[in-house]
């Protein structure tokens, strides 16, 4: 298959996979049982999407379990650690609001497989975005402590937002062919959504800062290597086995 298309499918798949992996770390440790269920449910949706996207890119398990950091193409945002619940929510808030727009557009892709994966996933992700938005409002407009934690969490995550809208030489031809979404066209709507929810949460929009970038090219934060070490342990330790 066309290298550019498979790279694109990997970007999409890796975003979902890495965030799904992160969310699954919460299992059994969430602040209340209802949140255990929601986080597991979102994680499950994301792992499902990742499987479909990576199947388009090649052998999904091979890609998930046998690539190293330099070959992962997820954005830096999704690999950020869970931190406290506010940090998990801040990450989900920035990502799901973007992913929903991205999938909505992708469901009109000239590539039928991408379009059909996106059409199914966008329904799941609109729930993820709603969940994150509601929690941003609850925590922002909750107690003094929750507000302070939410502010701090947004401070941590904010610099990873810009990367979501980057376009590079690999993406250009796919955008021209209407296979890939042009993320620049999503920015205004994303900002409007994020700003609206922050207002409901009685929170200020964090001041702009220099965006952190590199994930799409395999230049990640230190966190990804540890995540992969955990996730890939079994297939790596017992090569050539079926599970």
């Amino acid at each position: 298959m066309d290298r550019a298309l498979s790279d694109y499918a990997m970007r999409l798949g890796d975003d979902s996979l890495i965030l799904g992996q992160r969310l699954s770390e919460w299992c059994g440790h969430a602040p209340m049982l209802e949140l255990d269920l929601s986080l597991a449910n979102i994680g499950l949706d994301l792992v499902g999407q990742a499987t479909h996207f990576l199947m388009l890119a090649g052998d999904a398990d091979r890609l998930a379990f046998h690539r190293d950091v330099l070959d992962f193409k997820n954005c830096l945002l999704v690999e950020q650690p869970n931190g406290d619940f506010a940090q998990t929510i801040a990450r989900q808030f920035l990502f799901s609001n973007w992913q929903e727009l991205q999938l909505r557009e992708l469901s009109g892709s000239a590539n039928e497989t991408l379009a059909s994966i996106a059409a199914k996933a966008v329904k799941e992700v609109s729930y993820h975005a709603r969940f994150a938005n509601e929690w941003v409002v609850r925590l922002g407009d909750g107690t003094d402590e929750s507000r302070a934690r939410m502010v701090q969490a947004l401070e941590w995550m904010w610099r990873f937002g810009d990367e979501l809208f980057d376009v590079d030489a690999q993406l250009d031809p796919l955008i021209a062919e209407r296979i890939a979404v042009d993320p620049r066209e999503l920015r205004a709507e994303w900002e409007a959504r994020v700003t609206k929810t922050l207002a409901q949460a009685t929170l200020d929009v964090p001041v702009p800062r220099r965006g952190a970038r590199g994930g799409r090219m395999g230049h990640h934060s230190e966190h990804l290597g540890h995540l992969l070490a955990t996730m890939q342990f079994l297939p790596r330790a017992y090569p050539g086995t079926v599970w």
Partner: peptide, 21 residues
Amino acid sequence: GNWITRAPSLRRKAVLLAKVQ
């Protein structure tokens, strides 16, 4: 939950997540 993050394939991970949920 101790093994969800280390499930050895995407399918096993999804099934285990669903089960624990």
